[in-house]
Design a protein around this nucleic acid. Structure first.
Lengths: 223, 223, 223, 223
DNA sequence: TATGAATGAGGGTTCATTCAT
DNA sequence: AATGAATGAACCCTCATTCAT
């Protein structure tokens, strides 16, 4: 990580906290303001179409200042990825660590990732669109962290399948990719002024996932 | 459309046909070759990171020739979008027009879009990653066509819900966005050398969708 | 001259004829149409900013056709120059050949060149703005022809000075350059919807010239 | 104005000062050097035929440096216009503010603009030839400033007409356009190695103007 | 007489980054 | 901790012209 000055943050922020992170008021310290502004611009116009000049202008900072805190424009993007991965992981770990029936934990996790994603739509937009704009090294790191996240989620699915509360007609791996595809694409169609709240969408998504995992009958494979 | 010279293509190509389209042999006419090469490069490195110079070099064509056939680099991307939209729409229309129980048609459509997407992974990669790099005008066109596609798919879901063979716990709109999110993200994780064939993945995805839509019991919303 | 096909034109066209030349209807023969269109565009946007593509599009002709009739874009411009020089020379020669007192002939020539210039404003615009865009060779030709024109006009001034009806306080050379500067710049400020007609302006310009040449008193050189 | 760093200049420079401005020695700061070189090249070959590459090469500066100081090539041209307008306006204002009979002030102004124009022939060449190559916005600004200049000059003519020391046979507006046409065209025919000095030509031009404005008899309009 | 695909050199401009201060 | 002038490579695109047909 290249940011040389940054205070730690309390763990387990709520979804609404995380939205505040992105809103970074102009009086906040320089690196934070740069990150906030960059997130906004990257989501808006894409990484490659956002110039360093625009970022520093929007953050009311000089170029020199930016290069003082960040190694490169790339590094700025890497920080965005690090932030969102850290956040999602924290939330999933919290849910996974709770007690209760596995299907309840899966539902909570599934709904929560939707709500958090919607609360940080810019992050989500960047996440699914800009991975290839990161350097090879950093891509690898991101992918590795992402894999850890998926594996944790998958372990919950597997736990349910082993207990028989979930069907295993479809491999847990596939289920996880299937679900997170849906989640990532929220940034493509979700509009804050739509009919449904983030919580309602989270509920629906979780329902679709849980219903798909219901054991019993199953739909016959066509043929 | 900006390509000024191009013959029509036969209707209702199979999934394997479509893969061939992208592979465009070197002796094919200039615009086709450019499109094939551009698709490859855009998927590989992203639109903004692919220079016109690289495209024409890979297509063994001069820049002037490229600009003779395409209005701009943007236009090249627009053609990729037009092609994939046309293809997917044709296939969905074909499936929708078939007879048989609605759940069979949905399953076939759901599985087919997966297979077709995998057969044209480059297109899919570009599709979900580069829309914002298209000009406003062209974005609007793409979105409009995409909407028509979604609406056709949604009408199948609605039909099933009205017949009572699908649950309506989750609105058909949400179901469609949920499913196509999963589909679009295939390009993120699918690898040709993986354990499962395209058809198997299509089967699993269709199963997850159909199972989620099974009527009956349902999973209680967490309380 | 590079245009290979062009009928001769009657001599001594009136000012209104010449305006018609520029309006060239679309059904007129190809080279004439090209010349008319080019004149319009060169005056509008300047020679360098007018592409051959635009010219042939506006003339509803293909590029190949244009290059069949003209050697180059440059050649098109040369033709415009040739046309305007020919025209102005013809008119001046006609006036000079008339009888009557020299001051009447000068007045007529001075007024007529204004009216003709206004009737062919596009030509005038091009004339004073695009000479340097012609090849060296062609520039030389244009300048030579222009010199012949100036010399003819100057001979009228000299004639008046020798007769004593014009003052010779200012050398005839300077008078000529002085006057044609004014005339060329008509294209800079004249607007067809202005208060004065072309004839009125011609009258005023001729009056200014003739009054400046009145012998007698003269204004004392400052000092 | 787009040049971001430039000190003011002393007021009321003499004609010979202004010629020095254009000669900008090589050790002068980057923007000044660029402007000097650009003026030279634009006058020589025309704006459109002068490439940015040529400018920066002649100024011994990199392209990046040029774009650091100027927004565009267009901006460079706009600066040339701003400079010449500023200069001419200053001089006219100085003359107009002097005392003495109005005909003396007009004569001085008329002669001075000729001398100044000849001292800055490159500027004059560019001025009358390249206005249409400026962006619409900048053209408007230039024209507005030019109008202010003309109006000041015209007010002197009007003053003389009202006092009866100038005839009003020709409207003051027309007189102004007439005279400045002549002045602008100096750049077309004046050669430093000619027989007459700048001051002599200025004298002649002023004489022609003043003589044309002499009241009395007048030349009868031809009938 | 006319086409239009193709050329290839050059156009203006942008941009992430460096470095002396 | 911060500046901002300067770099230099790369970018997309335009264009007059040619040539096989």
């Amino acid at each position: 990580m290249a940011v040389r000055t940054r205070g730690g943050r309390g763990k387990q922020p709520t979804a609404s906290d995380t939205a505040l992170l992105a809103a970074a008021p102009p009086e906040s310290p320089v690196p934070r303001r740069l990150l906030a502004v960059a997130t906004r611009l990257f989501a808006d116009k894409g990484f490659d179409r956002t110039s360093v000049q625009e970022i520093v202008a929007a953050a009311e900072v000089t170029k020199g200042a930016m290069y003082h805190y960040f190694d490169s424009k790339d590094d700025l993007l890497a920080e965005v990825y690090a932030r969102v991965l850290r956040l999602q992981m924290q939330r999933l770990e919290a849910v996974a660590a709770e007690g209760g029936p596995v299907q309840d934990r899966v539902r909570r996790a599934a709904a929560d990732v939707v709500v958090t994603t919607i609360a940080n739509l810019d992050d989500a937009t960047i996440f699914f669109r800009s991975l290839h704009q990161l350097s090879e090294d950093k891509q690898r790191e991101v992918r590795a962290e992402r894999r850890r996240y998926h594996e944790l989620f998958r372990s919950l699915i597997t736990e349910g399948q082993e207990q028989g509360v979930f069907t295993d007609r479809v491999p847990a791996d596939i289920v996880v990719d299937f679900y997170f595809g849906s989640v990532h694409h929220l940034s493509t169609w979700y509009r804050p002024d739509g009919e449904l709240t983030a919580e309602e969408i989270g509920g629906h998504y979780a329902t679709l996932l849980l219903d798909a995992l219901r054991p019993g009958g199953g739909t016959a494979t066509m043929g």
